[in-house]
């Protein structure tokens, strides 16, 4: 199995790492970049495929040269075999559309020049943009079959089919079982969990870890960078120029303060204040 995983660097929003300016806007310079947490699940799905069926996993990211660190992290923590970075100033300020065009060009180039791809894995939503669109749009550009919101998956290499359980949201949530021919595109759900029910799979998993930690230490030897000319992409269709949407304004969301000072009330005569707070939520009087 030959898998590719799409991954992205995002600001580390965890407590203690993230930094905001006085107006409540994110300070990118002071906030470290980490691998998008949901992408880890896409990597886990690729790794599960590799553990069970063998093969090769490549990580692909689009972003500034610094994202090589994210790819290195992906290699170290979730065992990719090599990394591809689509990096070019022309790509800056891409929205999801322009990103999808670029990533799909990278995937096509890989498929033609490096190796035939069986599965492309992507995670759901990034922690910054949170659009959830890039996976489906990239796949749309490739016109491959797609399965999204995958919570569990299983591959039959002989039949060349992938069977997945996916989460469908509605007024009641559902789990669908779907079958897709390879090659296909898989977007993992945040609920995705790899399953390793045999000891030998787990031992292989462990072996890969030791192996890839060493490889990640020499990440530069395993990194290929492609710019827009390598990808034969027209600057009009990528980056800011190729982006339909722009952000017109950003407002911080006020956080509820956790410093509370309780007003002591006596139920015998002092509950008026509380009742005023409650009244707006009262049910409309019955008939």
């Amino acid at each position: 199995m030959r898998s590719i995983v799409l991954t992205k660097g995002v600001p580390d929003f965890s407590e203690g790492a993230v930094s905001f300016d006085e107006d409540g806007h994110l300070e990118r310079g002071k906030t470290p970049t980490v691998m998008n947490p949901n992408d880890e699940l896409a990597l886990e799905a690729a790794l599960q495929t590799k553990v069970r069926h063998g093969g090769h996993v490549s990580g692909i990211s689009m972003g500034p040269p610094g994202y090589a660190d994210v790819l290195q992290d992906a290699m170290a923590s979730v065992y990719t075999d090599d990394s591809y970075l689509l990096s070019d100033r022309e790509l800056a300020a891409s929205d999801t559309w322009a990103t999808a065009i670029t990533l799909s060009a990278g995937l096509e180039k890989y498929d033609e020049e490096v190796a035939d791809v069986d599965i492309v894995f992507a995670g759901f939503k990034t922690a910054d943009g949170e659009t959830g669109q890039t996976g489906p749009q990239t796949c749309w550009a490739l016109d491959w079959p797609i399965v999204t919101h995958v919570v569990a998956l299983d591959i039959d290499p002989e039949e060349r089919t992938l069977r997945a359980k996916r989460l469908v949201e509605g007024d009641v949530d559902e789990i669908e079982t779907v079958e897709v021919p390879l090659p296909c595109f898989v977007v993992t759900d945040p609920e995705f969990e790899p399953t390793y029910r045999t000891a030998s799979h787990r031992l292989t998993h462990k072996e890969l870890r030791a192996e890839t930690e060493e490889r990640a230490a020499e990440h530069d030897d395993h990194l290929t960078t492609w710019d827009h000319t390598d990808l034969n992409l027209d600057p009009d269709y990528i980056g800011l120029d190729g982006s339909p949407t722009i952000v017109s304004s950003v407002d911080p969301i006020p956080k509820a303060s956790s410093d509370r000072e309780a007003t002591m009330l006596d139920p015998e005569d002092g509950m008026g204040e509380v009742l005023e707070e409650m009244q707006p939520y009262a049910a409309e009087a019955g008939e």
Binding site: L6, K8, N36, M62, G63, P64, A92, A93, S94, D95, T96, A98, T99, A122, G123, K125, T126, D128, G129, T131, G132, Q133, T134, G135, L240, S243, T245, I246, V247, V250
Partner: peptide, 8 residues
């Protein structure tokens, strides 16, 4: 997955 607010 990128939105345009990611301009680096």
């Amino acid at each position: 997955m990128t939105t345009n607010d990611d301009s680096e």
